[in-house]
Design a protein around this nucleic acid. Structure first.
Lengths: 215, 215, 215, 215
DNA sequence: TATGAATGAGAATTCATTCAT
DNA sequence: TATGAATGAATTCTCATTCAT
């Protein structure tokens, strides 16, 4: 609307970037909603409000588009993780905070869970080519290691905890509940997503994890 | 052509049953491998070694075939769960046993994880129509409730543990690791499925859960 | 219309064969008219009066359809060549007859010339896989060899003529005139396909070839 | 940016000419390799190292680009033909020379054969609009007429030979062998392009033509 | 003169599903 | 119960061409 004056080249580039970002967002939603096989390029174009041909212009084909979406999804969560400042907290608070962050992020980004499911269905082959995949190793692993070590030295945490295992466990506790909430709800015959149910889940997870790490 | 009348009917019925079972198994593998959207009716027929038309004869369409596969997958795991005799064990042993069973079952039935992912991608609508969905509530929930209660009375377990939450947590700990093993392996840059890695995971999960329930 | 009674299986097979033959004929015309790149699967289906999907059912894809068309075209001309009985003629008459046959066949089958052009544009890669390509070696080469040898022994023909070279020359004389008739006509500014022009061409070719082989 | 005004215009014109020539050469190769229907404007731009839009700027559309390529191809061969000085030779030598020139030119310019094939596939409609088409009538026709006449008067050549027919025959003998070399090689099961095979072909053609014209 | 972004119309191919027997 | 043939409606992807600068 009211942009600062820019050169023609700048504008064009920004348009190109904006188009790509728009396509990525539309594709992310479509893939999350329908999976890789069920996603429709037509719908993605429609969602993006852009010509279908443009998707191929920028992303080559459906597979590579999915790869780009996946990469972006990881970039996004890593960005959020970076904002956490767990080392400033007491060890127990830091662990609690990590559980809560994981839960909140998954809750706020159901498309992330869905994308990961799709990626795993295809054995993560869409991650293989990514140069950025190596940078994707969460910074939280190292942080969690420090927290566990500090807690142990302080005498409040038990020793011998592998931060990778704990990180995977914390993720899994939220992930399974949220990602499988539909089948679980159907089978238990109750809605797992009411505010009450959600709060109970979070409490349980915090208790479970802290009950384990605290000696 | 010339079978004894009585037997002929029997045999034909048995043939029909066998065909249906063959189709179900083929469909299960196909859906697990490619998801609902990526599965191909042609390939299912090929896998089953039967004519494609026959699939429609027995299962009406792809959606209902998927529902049948899903139902069968639940029947299968419930069948195995029923064989567990957790109440015969000490509470702590029973919990450990449940963690191990869950892990082993998921490890031995990766297609089950994949099918659940697909079912959830589609918001479990394939479970809705099922008459048997009500019987699908795991018998383990009640059992786990009893175990937790007994442990609490004995003084070895902490109180106030919701068996549903714990059941979901136990499932989630195995599920996430195994179902997302491809993306996790890609990101951590190490193979999570080596015997050593698997055994470490199982130990961690048992420790985590027992560390929590034991007071 | 009035077919002899046949079993259901027979009829079905015959339908399948007929469908395939119909598709082949339609594809032959389309490829001849527009080349491989210009041919449209839609138009082939329309020409055949059959569903487009059926083409893929029987021929896999456009490339393989083209291969099948090419193979059939060779089978057709070989079939006609087989009907010639050149060895029953005097050597000079046999050579004249061969020139005339070649001319007439190309004249009557312009699609054959066009298909060969297309095949050569693509470096004959559509011929590579054909098992029958080896049987496609014209029976006329051997026959022509015998005729040349007999003529030489009789003293009417010059010696040292390679039958392959002569066969290629005879083909080339007709082929170039007919296949390139459009550009030639445009450049010479005269219609090369009038009856008079055609008869003059045939005379010239016979004279040229006989003028060479006769000593 | 800061060129001397007079030169600037010149240079720009020269740039324009060079761009057009570059496009033409790129298009020639692309059309020769893939045919009219198989050629891609994208690839032509890429081959030329120029923006696709520029092709449209200079040549309007694909069809007119093909026409231009064709016209240029004819201009090129006519240019070479003009360099021949057949009238300076003895009649028999002149004929031999013509056969050799034709063979060498086709051998050195396979793209010319391919372009002619494409032009004929489309019934030479790309030649119709050309203003220069009339100048394209080979100067060799008249020359060949003179040679034949001189040879006849000298008594070495037979009479009654139509120079157009002979010209077409000489062209056809080389053209068919070279243009159809792929299918012929596939069918005869031998490589027609080895130095030996090529030299044999040339000898045969010279013998054939001279055997005919010499009385 | 030159270019990167964008597009509509198509074209090959796919797929679930039905027909006919 | 079982099957090969056939189909209509997508679906992915392509292509010549145009826009805007």
């Amino acid at each position: 609307m009211s942009r600062a004056p820019a050169t023609a080249t700048d504008e064009r580039l920004r348009d190109a970037d904006r188009s790509q970002a728009t396509i990525l967002a539309a594709a992310r939603d479509e893939f999350a909603e329908h999976g890789l096989g069920g996603a429709r390029m037509d719908r993605i174009a429609e969602r993006a409000g852009l010509n279908k041909r443009l998707i191929y212009y920028y992303f080559e084909d459906k597979e590579q588009l999915f790869s780009a979406v996946l990469e972006q999804a990881y970039l996004d969560i890593r960005e959020e993780e970076r904002k956490l400042n767990l080392l400033a907290l007491e060890p127990a608070d830091a662990v609690r905070q990590l559980v809560e962050f994981t839960w909140d992020y998954y809750l706020g980004h159901p498309e992330f869970l869905s994308l990961l499911n799709s990626a795993n269905l295809h054995r993560a082959r869409h991650l293989e080519g990514s140069q950025r995949v190596r940078e994707m190793n969460s910074p939280l692993i190292a942080t969690l290691g420090e927290i566990l070590e500090r807690g142990r030295r302080e005498g409040s945490f038990r020793g011998g905890i592998d931060p990778v295992q704990l990180y995977v466990s914390i993720a899994g506790l939220s992930y399974f509940y949220l990602s499988n909430n539909y089948t679980l709800s159907a089978i238990f015959g109750r809605d797992l997503m009411t505010p009450k149910a959600r709060s109970e889940r979070l409490s349980h997870m915090v208790e479970l994890v802290l009950g384990y790490v605290l000696r």
